[in-house]
């Protein structure tokens, strides 16, 4: 399984340096979106580009035919793709954090990353992964292309939107309490976002496996 993750990285090794470029570029491009927007845009953007890059190369080389002819189970192929994207998300976070930190100490209007920001970004990344893969594993890369363009746009704005604090007006009482508690404790919020993200990923993984078991390679 790790071999497959390694493969997804290795096939893109010539463009890995772009990670640094995207990290810096996104911070500049999304400067006005605030801390979460810039940090998140960079991290999730990197995840998006390299996850899709790996899928695009699989498609271009028609290598799913190869992989499915090797003694590898389909659920391993799917799980490996999820692991690959977690790895890219982690890489995106590190680069984005570094770029933001440099900007901060360079005297630009950029805060240091905090736990809350991090949680929102991880959540967004996991959400992207969870939403993209089932469609990819059901239809294949080409047909999933339009869908992922939409996802990309969403991925850019969700961090910014979720940054605006939710007001409890008009919501059921228990949800109001919940949100209040959430807003007060950064740790709780981080935990909540992380938990929700992981839950999505696991549900998504199970759906993807189910879809991929039925895929045919003509």
């Amino acid at each position: 399984m790790l071999t497959l993750v390694f493969k997804d990285i290795l096939v893109q090794k010539n463009r890995l340096w772009l990670i640094v470029f995207y990290g810096v570029f996104m911070h500049i491009a999304l400067y006005s979106l605030g801390d979460i927007g810039a940090y998140g845009g960079a991290a999730v953007g990197i995840t998006y580009i390299f996850v899709l890059g790996a899928c695009a190369l699989d498609d271009k080389n028609r290598s799913e035919i190869l992989l499915n002819s090797l003694p590898i189970s389909r659920h391993s192929l799917v799980t490996a793709k999820y692991l690959t994207s977690l790895w890219f998300l982690a890489l995106g976070l590190v680069v984005s954090t570094l770029a933001g930190t440099v900007a901060h100490f360079a005297g630009l209007d950029r805060g240091l990353v905090n736990l809350g920001t991090l949680a929102v970004i991880v959540f967004t990344g996991l959400l992207f992964i969870s939403l993209y893969y089932p469609i990819y594993f059901l239809f294949g890369y080409l047909k999933a292309r339009y869908y992922n363009t939409l996802l990309f746009i969403a991925a850019l704005f969700v961090p910014a939107l979720s940054a605006t604090k939710v007001s409890g007006v008009g919501l059921p009482a228990w949800l109001g309490y919940f949100l209040e508690w959430f807003n007060r404790s950064q740790e709780a919020m981080a935990l909540g976002f992380l938990g929700a993200g992981l839950l999505f990923v696991i549900i998504s993984l199970l759906i993807s496996i189910k879809f991929y078991q039925e895929r045919e390679f003509a």
């Binding site: 493969k7 096939v11 190369l57 271009k60 080389n61 028609r62 290598s63 190869l66 002819s69």
Partner: peptide, 13 residues
Amino acid sequence: GFVYDENHFYDEL
């Protein structure tokens, strides 16, 4: 052991 009509290995490697 399989050999197909087209190449399915990764061009990039």
